[in-house]
Design a protein around this nucleic acid. Structure first.
Length: 305
DNA sequence: AAGAAATGCAACCGCATAGTT
DNA sequence: AAACTATGCGGTTGCATTTCT
């Protein structure tokens, strides 16, 4: 079946919108409301396709749209959300009132990607040094040093390329959410976790990673969409003892996969595969133990232990 | 001052998906 | 269940503006 185009393209206006067109669209939407963009385009007398009308309204004409001047706070939030969500611009924009996915996407590509790129280059140099140290330690039978190197630089795993850096942090965030949920915590309407043990000081501390990105319950559940996959009994370990929560956390699969789409190999966190800790040796016999310990550590903010 | 190159941003395009008939 | 429509999303393009030589 040949898909019909969203609108007739012949004779349609394209390119920049004029002030007159903007005015017509604003007036029409104010009277008739949003939606039914095809009829908007037709009835309002705009010689534009439905998509074009929708885009113009959502990105520029809609009330409450902020123009330019991304603040430092917003930039921080964008960076954090991008680490968590990847190129899910609409989701990110949803957390930034008055900002559009298009604007954030452009901002990321033009400004933040460059910043991250320069960061990445620095990190690459650091990783090279680290890899040499790890190799050296392995060759010389000492792993304490290599562990220390990694512990000192937790955020540079897989740095040559932002995706790997982002991936690890995503894993950390998602796993913390999942750990909390699976440990019986609930999330209130403000995105705050409440522990069945009550919200004591310890609870507050490890909630900051979520509250700091202004999440709400639906958002967390969305991010942690497949958390039930991580509950005990559903997992098997990789043969190489590495674990991966979303199978590489592809942007789309992480968010759109139904639980059945995720294989058991995809379900647990990839944890520093280059190090062979004693814990991992234990987990050769009990793979699930690794994940549970990791969750517990996350819950207690004791990941290094 | 003028042309070239780089940059930023608005808009377009194709695909995916939810909803409707 | 299949066909179709409407809408949303992310990637890409193209143009206007700015900066550099």
């Amino acid at each position: 079946m040949v898909r019909r185009p969203c609108c007739e393209k012949e004779g349609m206006n394209k390119g920049a919108w004029s002030a007159e067109e903007d005015e017509i669209l604003i007036n029409y939407v104010q009277i008739h409301g949003e939606g039914k963009w095809r009829s908007v385009a037709h009835n309002a007398g705009l010689n534009r396709c439905a998509k074009s009308c929708r885009l113009r309204w959502l990105n520029y004409l809609r009330p409450g749209i902020k123009r330019g001047g991304i603040t430092k706070d917003e930039e921080d939030l964008i960076i954090r959300l991008h680490r968590l969500l990847g190129n899910r611009w609409a989701l990110i924009a949803g957390r930034l009132p008055g900002r559009t996915d298009n604007e954030i996407k452009n901002y990321w590509k033009t400004i933040l990607a460059k910043k991250c790129e320069s960061f990445s280059l620095q990190s690459c140099a650091r990783k090279s040094n680290r890899e040499e140290e790890v190799l050296h330690c392995r060759n010389h039978g000492s792993k304490n040093n290599s562990d220390q190197v990694i512990a000192d630089q937790p955020s540079v795993a897989g740095v040559c390329g932002i995706p790997n850096l982002i991936q690890e942090e995503k894993h950390c965030l998602v796993e913390k959410s999942i750990g909390l949920i699976s440990n019986g915590c609930s999330i209130d309407n403000h995105g705050m976790f409440s522990s069945p043990l009550g919200r004591d000081e310890g609870d507050e501390g490890h909630l900051s990673f979520l509250t700091s990105i202004d999440v709400d319950k639906d958002f967390i559940m969305e991010v942690a969409g497949s958390e039930t996959q991580l509950l005990p009994g559903n997992e098997t370990a990789h043969e190489d003892n590495s674990y991966d929560i979303f199978g590489g956390f592809d942007n789309k699969t992480a968010m759109s996969s139904s639980p059945s789409d995720i294989t058991s190999d995809d379900q647990v966190v990839e944890i520093e595969t280059e190090t062979e800790t004693e814990t991992e040796v234990m987990c050769d016999q009990q793979p699930w133990l690794h994940v549970e310990l990791k969750k517990l550590a996350s819950f207690l903010d004791l990941e290094d232990e």
